[in-house]
Design a protein around this nucleic acid. Structure first.
Lengths: 344, 344
DNA sequence: CTGAAAGCGCTAACAA
DNA sequence: TTGTTAGCGCTTTCAG
């Protein structure tokens, strides 16, 4: 239970603490003989650095903090996995926090990460507006990259996908499958993802003359339950359009399920699309057509930006916004291309 | 970018650093007037404690480390969520690590957590044997609780469910549904979960005269893919038994999917059960019959044990093994009770 | 009730 | 190449 300190190692090896430090942190020149003695002593005693003490001295922890809106959302967990992997290559570790989609909790987590002297922070903000103060304050104190989502009006690095381009692909695909009317089912417009995705959807739908009734834009949250509820509401209020475009896969899973429960065949009577390409999206019946996010790439870019920001301590260059183009994964919840009905 | 220290607050408030410390860590008596001055100064300067410095001084971090085999397994993420919640009530934070099912990575994570002076560790070991040295060493240095899985031959606290009792319920239920033969699909017997679950399965199957062919015990890993592969193998080698008992929900999801893909109706021709009750288990077609683990309760007990171990520093009492009884959730992948065929 | 000062374990000047 | 020493920011005796 007693910790072994550098001083004890020094005593046993018959050298000074400075020498031990030099050996153990492999800095500075030490003769081979002394090095051997020190390592020997350290091993014998079972010495382990005290990262806390080292961090206090160096004001570096080799730790990166990450805050996600929800750790139970498979999209974020796979993003976390990618980030951890990318970080591992740099010899850094990840300190993960769950904001539970609450900007207040999020603010606490960010503050606490900063207080723990993490070298940088990766955050997918919970709210497009309310998350701003905490995110901006944190970004003023240390390197910070926003991932996937971002907060309106903040000046920080950001990495994500081009939601508008993605939605264009989605709508084109649905149109090819014969859709002439569509509904959009998303979360409240409280964060950038839904906002961007809806904007992309709406724009392309207009261009293609796909009908989108105002009361067929339904906003709730990113959950299976909400997807189910939304479909129930649509049916109650007059029936389903040709296509249901969902802002994420969880919603789409619920939507698909509810459609089938209410006797609507997917994709024959109604087409459904998701977003994110979580693992389960291929497991439902029918497997979901969705937008694949290049998670590893997103993670790698984020880590790279963080490293760069950490390096040039003096002055920060302009912030980077890296937007990757996602790909459409066509599965069984949409129809293959066909000539539009009126052209037959 | 510059950190505000206690000294700056002290100067601005016109008091000593000791007084500031007393106010900010709410220890010791301070006059109301001084307290107000100090708080004022701290707010003005935007002071935030340096947790690192405090930790070095106190050798306490109010942080608990958690290591799970896989952060993409929904069972573990929901367990993490429960633990974080339970910890929040104690004012502690969670430092989460993913071992990627690799005892080596796991060992590194454990060491690193210990080096960071976490107050305690919650670990669900990746391997029933290979995880032992790291887990035992860590447990010797600080409070440690094993969750869900455990390592053979270690003396630490443990919280989980009674797998044997759970499997008894599963087998009874399948038998009620008419099953007279069954296969078991699990991970390699490299960790306690599968071991225990298989033992429970086998024992009850024997008691009920349910046939289990030796080559119908298939061991791979906890993944959807393995579930799919296992079914393919069973079919290739002579067909499916009445029931397929899976060691976790991911496997069961793959199993169900593969059964349907190969034209076997679930549950009419073959019954399938899972284990864990992850959220997606109710979303597949058919919804999965599975064993529900009381996650919140498991988490609460673990946190309680950790707190207790942290308190009595002097001598550790005997270690506790807390085993909770899980409940069977009957959904649509199994058949309702019926009189056994031979009794009709 | 408040202040001075020591020291948690480590590293980096600076000396030798 | 190695040792001496100061100090990272905080808490906590011990005096006052």
């Amino acid at each position: 239970m007693q910790r072994v300190t550098i001083a004890q190692v020094a005593e046993r090896a018959g050298v000074s603490t400075a020498t031990v430090s030099r050996v153990l942190s492999r800095r500075g020149q030490v003769s081979a003989a002394v090095e051997r003695k020190v390592r020997r002593a350290a091993d014998d005693l079972g010495y382990q650095v005290n990262v806390i003490a080292r961090a206090l001295r160096n004001s570096r922890t080799d730790t990166v903090g990450m805050v996600v809106p929800s750790i139970t959302n498979p999209f974020f967990t796979s993003l976390v996995e990618s980030v951890e992997h990318a970080l591992g290559k740099e010899g850094k570790e990840l300190f993960l926090c769950d904001a539970r989609s609450d900007p207040q909790i999020e603010a606490r987590r960010l503050a606490s990460l900063a207080a723990r002297n993490v070298d940088g922070i990766i955050v997918s903000p919970s709210h497009g507006v309310d998350s701003r103060p905490a995110v901006q304050q944190t970004a003023d104190r240390l390197p910070l990259v926003q991932l996937d989502r971002f907060v309106d009006g903040t000046t920080t690095d950001w990495v994500g996908v081009d939601d508008v381009a993605a939605m264009r692909q989605v709508v084109d695909h649905l149109h090819d499958g014969g859709a002439r009317s569509a509904a959009f089912i998303g979360s409240l417009m409280t964060h950038s993802s839904t906002e961007q995705r809806f904007a992309g959807f709406r724009r392309r739908a207009e261009e293609l003359n796909i009908e989108v009734k105002p009361d067929q834009v339904l906003l709730g949250d990113y959950s299976v339950e909400w997807g189910e509820a939304a479909v129930a509401r649509l049916i109650a209020e007059g029936g389903l359009p040709d296509a249901l475009v969902c802002a994420d896969d969880l919603i789409a899973l619920g939507v698909t399920r509810a459609c089938r429960a209410h006797g609507f065949a997917v994709p024959r009577q109604v087409q459904v699309t998701g977003y994110d390409d979580i693992e389960f999206s291929r497991l439902t019946e029918p497997a979901l057509t969705t937008v694949h996010q290049p998670r590893d790439r997103i993670a790698a870019e984020a880590v790279r930006l963080l490293a760069a920001a950490g390096a040039k301590d003096a002055e920060r260059g302009p912030h980077a916004h890296i937007s990757l183009v996602p790909t459409l994964v066509v599965r069984d919840s949409t129809r293959a291309a066909q000539a539009p009905p009126d052209r037959i």
